[in-house]
Amino acid sequence: MFADHDELMRRIERDLLDGYDEELEMEIEDRRMDEVLTEGMSRSEEEVAARISYFKTLFHLQGELVKLQEWVVSQRSKVVILFEGRDAAGKGGVIKRITQRLNPRVCRVVALPAPNDRERTQWYFQRYVPHLPAAGEIVLFDRSWYNRAGVESVMGFCSEDEVEEFYRSVPEFERMLVRSGIRLIKYWFSISDEEQHLRFLSRMHDPLKQWKLSPMDLESRRRWEAYTKAKEIMLERTHIAEAPWWVVQAVDKKKARLNCIHHLLSQFDYQEVDRPEIVLPERIRHANYIRHPVPSAMMVPEVY
């Protein structure tokens, strides 16, 4: 199939580099493309070194996440991780980096839309329960049942009685989850007023990110202080021993990602799972096998 061993190794190397380039795509998404492509021209040696250090650390932590994933499967553990924080706090960025190299059948993300008319008449936690993990699964909630303590409370989408009932119920609900064998970890991503303002401006002027700004996001800027008060009440009333809150300082996106992943790994006494050596079997070949050509009309045009 390959002319020689060197060609095979070059192909493998290119495939590996292609995988690593996914991280560069995220880097471009976070910053202006021309800034990335002229990195060596406009950045100091210290900044370039810091960027290289970031990627090295991230790749190492992602390797540990793969080990954690395999350990969760082997132990048939059930893990739930909640990511909460203000709009543009960086929750989606860290979720991307956690899941990037993991098996989506083991580690999946839940990001529910606003409840529909039927769901609004259900027990509040009911629509979240079907998404909880089975044995050997990790579920990341990109926002969670804490919507009631945040956006629903601040924007008046629920009554004061409903908010108070939430605060009475959520510690009991989470203790039930923990007693059932679910490991529940809760992160709050904290950013400053100035940093959120800057990130919103960045999204406004970036065509690739404008979709991230909803009318609700814009209103949250106006109600910054109300969200602050709601957050403080939430942390005070739902920080329980069985499922404490962990606050991630997220003004620096890269540091926040590394710190969150490092902390997440520290919450588990995981070990590398021994796996049998993988041996690639020889392909069976038949003399009468004929590969029929694909009709040209079915081929995707090779524009690039």
Rank of each mutant, 00 (worst) to 15 (best):
R179Y: 00
V178P: 08
K212T: 03
E225D: 15
D193C: 00
S214L: 01
A250E: 02
E236D: 12
M176V: 12
E236W: 02
E219V: 15
W188E: 00
H197I: 01
L201H: 07
V247T: 13
S220R: 08
P244C: 04
H205E: 15
I182D: 06
V251E: 13
F200A: 08
R223F: 07
A250Y: 02
A243E: 15
E194Q: 01
I233M: 11
Q210C: 10
E225S: 12
E195V: 06
E242T: 07
R179C: 00
S202H: 06
Y187H: 03
P207T: 09
R203N: 09
R221G: 10
L235C: 08
H239L: 03
I185L: 14
S202A: 14
H205M: 10
L213F: 11
P207S: 01
A230D: 08
S192K: 01
R183F: 00
A241D: 14
K212E: 02
S202M: 09
L218E: 14
F189H: 13
I233Y: 03
R199Q: 08
L201G: 07
I240Q: 10
W245I: 05
K231A: 04
R203S: 00
R199G: 06
K212Y: 03
K186G: 09
E242N: 12
S190D: 13
I185R: 05
E174C: 04
T238S: 11
R237L: 13
I182C: 11
K186P: 13
W188G: 02
L213G: 09
K212M: 09
I233T: 14
L235D: 07
A230H: 11
G181Q: 06
R203W: 01
